[in-house]
Amino acid sequence: MRRHDARTAAGFLAPFGILFALFFLLPIVYAIYQSLFTIERTGALGLGGEEQVFAGFDNYVDALQEPGFVDSLGRVVVFAAIQVPVMIVFALVLALLLETASARGVPFFRTAYFLPFGVPGVIASILWGFLYVPGVSPIVGALDQVGIHVDFLGGDTVLLSIVNIVTWEFVGYNMLVLVAQLQSIDPNLYEAARVDGASGWHIVRHIKLPMVRPAIVLTTVFTIIGTLQLFAEPLILKPVSTSISSHYTPNMAAYNEAFSNNNYHLAAAEAVLLALVAMVLSFGFLRLIGRGGDRR
C-alpha cells in the first residue's frame, strides 16, 4: 500500500518534475556551462577558424569590467528603489479602497484596475510610447498649450516614464493579490474593533495591514524580481528616446551581447550575474522582513 502511494505521488509529480527539469533547471545549468567558455580565433584577421576553450571566470571578470553592464545593474537597482514602493503603496491603497465598507461599484473598478494586466508588455509600451512622443502625444500637446514643456523621453525622465508603464501594467494584479488576502479576514474582527471604539484608520492600521502582511511580502518579492528583469518596456521605447542605450538594463545588455555581438558566452555570464543579484536582493528582503517580525 505504501509503495502504491509513493508510485501515485510520483505519477502526479512527474509531469511537473520533467517539465521543470527540462525547461528550468537544464537551461540554467547550460547557461552556467556556457559562461565558463570562450571563443578563440586563429588565422589571418581572425577569420581562419574558431575554437571553444575553457575560460574559467574570465567572462565574469569581463562582464564586471564592462562599464555599460555595471551601469545597467546600478540603473535597475535605482529603478527598483522607485518602482517597488510606488507599486506596493499604490496597489495597497487601491485594494483598501475597494475593500472599504462604503465602496461603490466594486466589481467594475476591480475589473478596470486589473484590465491593463491583460495587455502584453510590448503592446503597453507601444501604447504609452505614443503618449510620450512629442508631436504625436495629446498629453504633451495639451501640456504645451498651458505652457508646461515636458519631455517624457529625456535622460532625467525616461526612467520614471518606464515606472509609469510598469505600474500601469501590474498594479491591478498586485492589488488583486492583496484584495484576496483582505477578503479572507474574519469580519468579526472589524466588529469587535468597532465595539472597542476603533476608527476606520485604526482598523486599517492595526487589523488590515498586519493581516495582509504575507501578501505584501509576496508582491514585494515579485516586484523586486520583475523590476530587475526589466526588458520589453525600454527595448520598445528605445527607437523613440535618445536616452535609452542598447545596454540600458542588464537583460538588454545580455540580449545585445548575445544577438548583436554574437558573444553568447559573455551574455551567459551577464545573465548568471543578474540572476545572482536578483537572488541576493530577494532573499535579502525576506531576511530583513523576517528579522523585523522577530523583534515585534
Binding site: 494586466f117 508588455g121 494584479y173 498586485n174 515579485f222 520583475g226 528583469q229 526588458f231
Partner: peptide, 11 residues
C-alpha cells in the same frame, strides 16, 4: 508582478 517575472523567465 508574478506574471511579469514569469514571462521574463520563460523568455
Amino acid at each position: 508582478m508574478i506574471r511579469h517575472a514569469r514571462r521574463k523567465i520563460s523568455v
